[in-house]
């Protein structure tokens, strides 16, 4: 029922999307595709696109939600990017997920698809030596259709905008710290997904209201088929068996991390804008929390923060796992 509703919503919201640059004809049948919704992310785009190109993503399908900073123009010049423009409400489209579901259904079916935000960077086991095709081929061998990657909030030492981020720069040169072991997990019996909360956002902004802390569980890499929909961002998928990306009998399945480069200088402008636009999840309560928190406690760093080295470090810390892929 939820699934039909999700598909129908995607169908309804499809008219809001206007193809600005449709290069989907160049997609080949075994390409890994990347789906993104963005607004005013010009400064982040060059590094973002290059990062995923290096992993082996072949085509980007991007919804530009009325950017005014030149993001649209920049994307037009990229040969491997198709762009849809919309000026409709981000919130009314279920925070972009209706648009994503529509594009995924239309262009993603039969492909491995990666649905991420422009500040999310996928890390999977062996990503430094094996392209993403190695992972998807391996998943295909076992008929696994969904690969989990928990959101790992990265932050700099000191105020998050002390060191300005400049175009093309690796964001993790600045935001290189993370929380290694304060994540709280419970199982959502209805949709069978794990609900993960914690990290710097929970401790800094939601210490008094933990139940409102942002969800960190994500399933960004999915072999798409027409009967699938994302339910709430990429936190949950339908049919729900796709959410069973974890082992319940003591073993470990393979998983990755989405390094989240949110706490960087571009955030300042975003917070100011969202406070008035009110387009984000939960009546933008997360942004509201930053609005108050970013002035009073701008430094997320603690004595126990870990400095990012590589995926092996994340695996040793227990944040991700190679499972039996070795």
């Amino acid at each position: 029922m939820d699934r039909q509703r999700g598909q129908f919503r995607g169908f309804l919201h499809r008219r809001e999307l206007r193809a600005v640059s449709d290069r989907t004809g160049s997609i080949r049948h075994d390409d890994v595709l990347c789906f993104v919704t963005l607004r005013n992310e010009r400064v982040r785009l060059p590094y973002f696109l290059d990062y995923y190109r290096r992993l082996g993503v072949r085509h980007f399908l991007i919804v530009d939600n009325d950017s005014a900073d030149g993001s649209g123009e920049y994307l037009l010049d990229q040969n491997d990017v198709s762009v849809w423009h919309t000026s409709a409400s981000y919130r009314a489209s279920n925070f972009g997920i209706d648009w994503m579901n529509h594009l995924l259904r239309r262009y993603g079916s039969g492909h491995w698809t990666l649905t991420v935000d422009p500040d999310e960077f996928l890390i999977y086991p062996f990503h430094d030596t094996r392209p993403i095709g190695a992972l998807t081929d391996w998943l295909d061998t076992y008929e696994i259709r969904a690969f989990p990657a928990m959101l790992l909030d990265m932050y700099p030492k000191g105020p998050f905008d002390a060191q300005p981020y400049h175009e093309g720069q690796d964001p993790f040169e600045i935001a290189c710290w993370f929380d290694s072991g304060n994540y709280m997990i419970r199982k959502n019996e209805k949709q069978r997904n794990l609900w993960i909360q914690g990290g710097p956002r929970a401790r800094a902004f939601f210490a008094r209201r933990p139940e409102e802390a942002p969800s960190l569980n994500k399933i960004p890499l999915v072999r798409w088929s027409k009967d699938q929909v994302f339910l709430s961002s990429t936190h949950m998928l339908l049919p729900r068996r796709l959410n069973a990306v974890y082992d319940e009998w003591g073993g470990e399945k393979a998983s990755g991390c989405l390094l989240h480069a949110k706490f960087l200088s571009p955030l300042r402008g975003k917070v100011a804008e969202e406070m008035t636009r009110n387009q984000h999840y939960g009546a933008s309560r997360e942004y509201r929390a930053y609005g108050s928190g970013l002035e009073t406690t701008p430094d997320l760093w603690t004595n126990w923060s870990e400095k990012y080295i590589n995926w092996r470090q994340l695996e040793i810390l227990g944040l991700m796992s190679r499972g039996m892929w070795t």
């Binding site: 989990p148 928990m150 794990l194 974890y246 399945k253 393979a254 998983s255």
Partner: peptide, 13 residues
């Protein structure tokens, strides 16, 4: 068998 005592996104026994 996984790593004893670890609860994470792909191991939740």
């Amino acid at each position: 068998r996984g790593r004893p005592g670890l609860y994470m996104q792909s191991r939740f026994p």
